[in-house]
Design a protein around this nucleic acid. Structure first.
Lengths: 219, 219
DNA sequence: AATTGTGAACCTCTTCACAGCT
DNA sequence: AGCTGTGAAGAGGTTCACAATT
């Protein structure tokens, strides 16, 4: 297994790596021991050479004439994505969505630990949700200073986003997964990824219309 | 305003269109009437020419020397993405996440109507959550035949995904927004988009490590 | 003076195709 | 024979730079 010199990996490759993991987990659960790039690609709507190229950025993990060992493949991606270490996560905003995430039991099977939650509602502060204590949002800087918390998940209502974002920027938090429809950009010290449910519905709306037009064109 | 002949719009452009909408809404709320591509770009970590190029696929919407009228810009994107029509959505899987989506009040401000929910739990079937009736998952074909439902949102536990997916494929549903960690690919009749929370955390894990290495490199 | 819209240049990502290994 | 890994070709996306317009 060769090591490659560092280079920037594209967003698309990164997403596919995460997808490979999902599919490989499924294959592993099914007891499959070996998989070829062409079998994997047929399960995922991508080409086999795409998979091999994605992997080639990081080294070689397969056997010519044979394919990839499923477990070794999983471990390789986990190592690439730094999933062997546990990562602390906090939930900012304990509404219905935040609570749903706090109660997501199968997160225990992942390298992510939810270690804290924050809200501004006095009725919620101090209570426990799924054995995580809800802290006052004003104490986020202090609490995250004590427990090293790499990732904040933002699930607050839109009208407080800018306020809460300002606190997160100041706190010792490295990254933010933003579920709100307010686009955030981050800075050198805070990596941000936006994940808005309604934006995704809007993209579907566009694609359905486009598909409709294409179908009409053919018909 | 020119019309352009149809061409395939990239995933990246599509995502940015949805992002533009989010930012434009914010500017509109702030009472801003006009915005230039450079102001907009500085709010979003992209270049101004990227914005202008994205728009150029669909026509011209700005005034040279002036910029874009915010409201007109919003309306243009809404028209492009087919957001003037209402779209019916159903929630498949009324667990904590599904319930959170069913209770999301501000969806009323969007073109998406949640019109039905499905589950296999007899304790939930027949009950109302946020004035939407929960139906038996077995009746999805029939219920979606009656109410035209374009988009299904999948929020069931992993172990029933394949089962439920088979039902959705057979039902008169055009698209699926999949929140589960089981990657689905769709087919000619069913458009699928995957939106997995944990995969997104994994991507953050990779990016944080990469950033760490870059920071160390700089010293 | 400011800003759009756009062809051309540039760069990045994907696919091809095949040498090389099992 | 089957499949990987990869350089090269091809396709697609982004940025540049400037003419056109207000």
């Amino acid at each position: 297994m060769k090591k490659k010199k560092s280079q920037t990996i594209s967003e698309s490759t990164l997403k596919r790596l995460a997808d490979y993991l999902c599919v490989l987990r499924y294959l592993d659960d099914q007891g499959m021991e070996t998989v070829s790039s062409s079998v994997l690609s047929s399960m995922m709507n991508i080409t086999d050479s795409q998979i091999r190229k994605d992997l080639s950025y990081f080294g070689s993990f397969g056997k010519k004439g044979v394919g990839y060992n499923v477990k070794a493949f999983i471990e390789a991606i986990e190592k690439i994505m730094n999933l062997n270490e546990k990562h602390n996560v906090c939930i900012v905003g304990v509404g219905r969505l935040g609570s749903a995430l706090l109660n997501y039991k199968r997160i225990k099977e992942t390298p992510f630990n939810i270690v804290a939650a924050f809200d501004n509602d006095k009725k919620k502060i101090g209570k426990k949700i799924g054995n995580i204590t809800v802290h006052n949002i004003e104490s986020i800087d202090e609490v995250c200073g004590n427990i090293k918390c790499e990732i904040a998940v933002l699930t607050v209502p839109s009208y407080v986003v800018h306020d809460v974002y300002a606190r997160i920027v100041k706190a010792p938090i490295a990254s933010l997964l933003n579920f709100t429809p307010i686009i955030l950009t981050g800075n050198d010290d805070l990596l941000v990824r936006n994940m808005d449910f309604v934006s995704e519905l809007k993209i579907i709306s566009y694609l359905l219309k486009e598909k409709d037009n294409a179908d009409k064109g053919k018909g």
